[in-house]
Design a protein around this nucleic acid. Structure first.
Lengths: 201, 201
DNA sequence: GTCTATAACTCGATAGAC
DNA sequence: GTCTATCGAGTTATAGAC
């Protein structure tokens, strides 16, 4: 929590909470005003309209993890280390922001073009180096033959999916919130191990 | 396409398309009426209100894959065969219904309790046998030690995630629709191979 | 900057003719 | 069963006082 607690900051905090919980279409300006403890008119005074406010929140949510993840992919470390650090850091970020993935994926599917445009202007994916590392290690016979793209998708899938499927997984396996949390924590080391076991010769 | 093309069927087809594309909150009754080429009042004549219409569509979408997947998990085949058949069949279903996962996950996160209730009444997850198979194979030293739950989550994650993250993956790797399709097709065999490589001794 | 009041509009739902 | 017309609730957005 910041010392500075201006109206604008209160609005952003409230809007973040409401938009992430209900999505662009489900959220009501009144909900956000209530959450912020201010008047509805203030929202328009500061952000003009709902669309602009949403855009602000979405961009902020997206930037809360994208640059960090992106830099990890571009780091100068060997493949196994990179897989470990990526999974560890990514899951840490997701634990801190468990509802962001479904929020982002939802918007991604609602307006793919707008979304992609936003990503590429705010720093395009730096996945190239990782793909080349995988390819090089395959050629050097350090790991089994595998498509770099497939491997990358496997890694991201295993990190992200549990967060978007949480209620279903909890129901299927009878996990309460604490147990779910423990299970996800474990994945920080289990996913790298699973991947490395698979590709090691 | 059926020969029988009653108004009710036209409504259901239109509602499915619109709801899956825009979700419960984003969809408009007018959109559905337009898509069906009929009048808005007809929607209420046949389904009373939006909620009931949505429920119909959601249940139908959910049942379009749930029972099939569920039965696969419960089949009497060995572990490796089960992993192969599950990934193959699941991805086949997903290719046929690529927008269903984000639709379902969205609803899942919007109203977890309602959703879970619905699942359990329409046939609870039959994941038990698979988990016991994994456990048994670990004990019998047929595969490496791994948590059955973690392994299951890995498998489902790798199958489903590409479909919810499609636009992002296409952008990141510069894939057009055909290339994406090929990539996903490949995963029907790549995911089982990846998993089996990982857990084999 | 902040509030109250209300305009302007969207959308689900209904009435009633045919 | 199907349509047109319209109501009424709920929401975004604005006007205007303080």
């Amino acid at each position: 929590m910041k010392k500075q607690d201006t109206t604008e900051e209160k609005i952003i905090a409230a809007a973040k909470k409401v938009f992430i919980a209900k999505g662009m279409m489900g959220a009501r300006m009144q909900d956000i005003a209530d959450e912020a403890g201010i008047n509805k008119a203030m929202l328009h005074y500061y952000f003009r309209n709902k669309e602009k406010l949403f855009d602000k929140i979405f961009t902020e949510a997206f930037l809360s993890f994208w640059p960090k993840i992106n830099d990890l992919l571009d780091a100068d470390i060997n493949l196994f280390q990179k897989i470990e650090s990526f999974c560890h850091s990514y899951i840490d970020v997701l634990i801190e922001n468990p509802y962001v993935p479904i929020f982002v994926l939802n918007e991604l599917n609602r307006q793919p073009a707008v979304f992609i445009q936003k990503i590429f202007t705010s720093g395009p994916p730096k996945v190239g180096k990782l793909l080349r590392q995988i390819e090089a290690d395959v050629k050097a016979d350090k790991i089994k033959a595998i498509s770099p793209v497939q491997l990358f998708i496997n890694m991201v899938s295993m990190c992200v999916f549990p967060f978007v499927g949480k209620p279903m997984l909890q129901a299927a396996f009878g996990m309460n919130d604490l147990q779910f949390r423990k299970m996800v924590e474990l994945r920080k080391t289990e996913i790298p191990r699973f991947i490395i076991d698979s590709i090691s010769k």
